[in-house]
Amino acid sequence: MIAVLDYGIGNLRSAEKALQRAGGDARLTSDPEEAAAAEGVVLPGVGAFGRCLGALRASGLDRAALAAVESGKPFMGICVGMQMLYESSEEDPEARGLAVLPGRVVRLPEGEKHPQMQWNQVHAVRDDSRLLQGCGPAPWFYFVHSYAPEISEAVVATCDYGGPVTAAVETGNVWATQFHPEKSGPAGLRLLGNFVVACAA
């Protein structure tokens, strides 16, 4: 079973349904024990960084997320679910991130429209990405965001939006995408399929 953490934020149903379509036994859950028993955990998120973290902590699922990361089981953050894995964000400087990954989340380059609300092409910066396996050299994914993590060592793919912007990261069992694979048609389903396979291994 793949646990999609439900802490009452936005549209989580798409993530659950897309994982199911990709072959996973995905379930929305707000129960930390169910998350602990799962083979993989997905942390979605939309909206503001601080508000998502507040809701996540209020639900107690922050500890479930951290426990999943530490357990070594496949873990995937999506959009603000990715951003929350970092230490902080320019969006809400007071809010403390989960600090699973070093670094901070910064505003997209000025001179471009905010939010980036479009499909964009993703360029792999490492060729050993498990997350992007089989997605082709430059797949298209759907982005909706005004902030993104600073480029760091964990980055496996970037998109161009007034300069290179973090699109996907991968470090050990922790995978994350700034784009929405659950809204990215066949390319997104292929990527989620890679996660489903990792969860089954």
Binding site: G10, N11, V46, G47, A48, R51, V80, P115, M117, V144, H145, S146
Partner: peptide, 8 residues
């Protein structure tokens, strides 16, 4: 926007 985020 406060409840769901501007992107919604």
């Amino acid at each position: 926007a406060e409840e769901f985020g501007s992107q919604c």
